[in-house]
C-alpha cells in the first residue's frame, strides 16, 4: 500500500530530513512512527500526501510513484488519503458539520450525498450532537475528532495522523487512539507519527523508530522503547537498521 524505496529528503536549507529510508506499510496495517522531534516522522508522512517530494528514491502509494505524479493529479491523490494534524486545522468560522462537509464541497460531491455522509462521519467520531458547534466551542479532543471526521468523510483507504495527540490530555489522547484503532478495523491503513510513549506502549502495534532521518528499529507489536533490551543507551540514537 505504502512503500518507501531508499528515500532521501534534503530541505533547501541543507537539512537532511530522511536518509536512505526503505520500508513498506501494508494495506490495512496500523503503524506508529516514533522518534524524537526533528527525526523525520512528519517528513515521512509529507512524502505520502506529496507535501514534499523526495530528493532521491521512490514513494509508492497504491502502486503509484507519488514523486512522479503530475502536479494536476496531486489533488486526486489527496482525496484518497485522510490527514490529521496536531493543531486540528479546522476553519474557525465554520461549524463542525460545515468543516467536515467542506472536504466534500471542494471535490464537488452532490449536496444530497454530502448530507448523507457528514452525519455518518460525525457519528463515527461520536460528535453528531455537536454538529452545529464552532471549533472554539469544542474541547481539544472534540476538535481533533472533527478533524478525523473530515479526514474520513471521503472514505480514504489511508489515514495519516501527525502527532494527533500532541495537544491533548491523556484521556482525550487515549480516546483518539482508540478511534484510530476502530477506523483501522474497518480496513483503513493508519499511520500515526507520535512521541507519546504511553499510547504506543498501550496499543502494542507495529512501531517504526526514526532517528536522524534513518529507520533504526522496526518491530511488530512493539513498545516505544523497542530494542532497548538489545543494547544500552538512548534508543533514539541507536543505529540499528532493521529490515521491514
Amino acid at each position: 500500500m505504502i512503500e518507501f524505496d531508499d528515500v532521501c529528503l534534503r530541505y533547501p536549507n541543507g537539512t537532511q530530513a530522511l536518509d536512505h529510508v526503505s520500508t513498506t506499510i501494508e494495506k490495512g496495517e496500523f503503524c506508529f512512527l516514533v522518534g524524537a522531534s526533528g527525526m523525520g516522522k512528519s517528513s515521512l508522512l509529507k512524502l505520502v500526501y506529496r507535501e514534499e517530494t523526495p530528493s532521491a528514491g521512490r514513494v509508492i502509494v497504491n502502486g503509484t510513484d507519488v514523486a512522479a505524479l503530475p502536479k494536476r493529479h496531486v489533488p486526486l491523490l489527496r482525496r484518497r488519503i485522510g490527514v490529521v494534524f496536531q493543531d486540528f486545522r479546522l476553519l474557525s468560522k465554520k461549524t463542525a458539520a460545515e468543516n467536515v462537509g467542506y472536504a466534500l464541497d471542494v471535490i464537488g460531491v452532490p449536496r444530497r450525498e454530502k448530507h448523507r455522509r457528514v452525519p455518518k462521519a460525525l457519528e463515527l467520531v461520536d460528535l453528531l450532537h455537536k454538529a452545529d458547534a464552532y471549533p472554539d466551542e469544542l474541547s481539544g479532543g472534540e476538535q481533533q475528532r472533527v478533524s478525523m471526521a473530515r479526514a474520513l468523510v471521503n472514505n480514504p483507504p489511508i489515514l495519516l495522523a501527525d502527532e494527533p495527540t500532541g495537544n491533548l490530555d491523556p484521556d482525550a489522547s487515549w480516546n483518539i487512539v482508540q478511534l484510530l484503532s476502530k477506523i483501522n478495523i474497518t480496513g483503513t491503513t493508519v499511520v500515526v507519527a507520535t512521541h507519546d510513549r504511553d499510547i504506543v506502549n498501550r496499543m502494542a502495534r507495529r512501531v517504526v523508530t526514526l532517528s536522524e532521518g534513518r529507520i533504526v528499529a522496526d518491530r511488530q507489536r512493539a513498545s516505544y522503547d523497542v530494542g532497548e533490551a538489545d543494547s544500552p543507551g538512548d534508543p533514539m540514537t541507536r543505529r540499528e537498521e532493521v529490515s521491514p
Partner: peptide, 16 residues
Amino acid sequence: RREIGIMQLVGATSRF
C-alpha cells in the same frame, strides 16, 4: 492561507 492549506489538504484542485 490556512484555509488554502486545508483546501489543498482535502484534495481541492488549484482551479477550485
